[in-house]
Computed example of a mutant assay.
Amino acid sequence: MILETSLIEILKSLDELPWDHQLYLSSGGISSLESMALVLSDDDEIERDSKDEPLYAIERQYQYYLGIQDLQGIKDNLQSQSPIESIEELVAAINFYHENDAFICINS
Rank of each mutant, 00 (worst) to 15 (best):
M1K: 08
I2H: 03
L3C: 09
T5S: 14
T5F: 08
L7P: 06
I8N: 13
E9D: 15
K12L: 13
L14H: 06
D15Q: 10
P18Q: 07
W19A: 07
Q22I: 01
L23Y: 05
Y24F: 13
S26I: 15
S27L: 12
G29E: 14
S31G: 15
S31K: 15
S31Y: 14
S32T: 13
S35C: 10
A37D: 04
L38R: 07
V39E: 02
D44E: 08
D44Q: 03
D44N: 02
E45T: 05
E45K: 08
E47S: 04
R48E: 07
S50R: 09
K51I: 06
K51Q: 09
D52Y: 10
E53M: 08
P54T: 07
L55Y: 02
A57Q: 01
R60H: 10
Q63E: 11
Q63S: 12
Y64V: 00
D70S: 11
D70P: 01
Q72I: 02
G73A: 08
K75N: 04
K75H: 03
K75Q: 13
D76W: 05
D76F: 07
N77H: 14
L78C: 07
Q79P: 00
S82W: 12
P83G: 13
I84P: 08
E85F: 12
I87P: 09
E88R: 15
L90H: 05
L90Y: 09
I94D: 03
H98T: 03
H98Q: 13
N100D: 10
D101F: 08
A102G: 02
F103D: 05
F103W: 06
C105T: 12
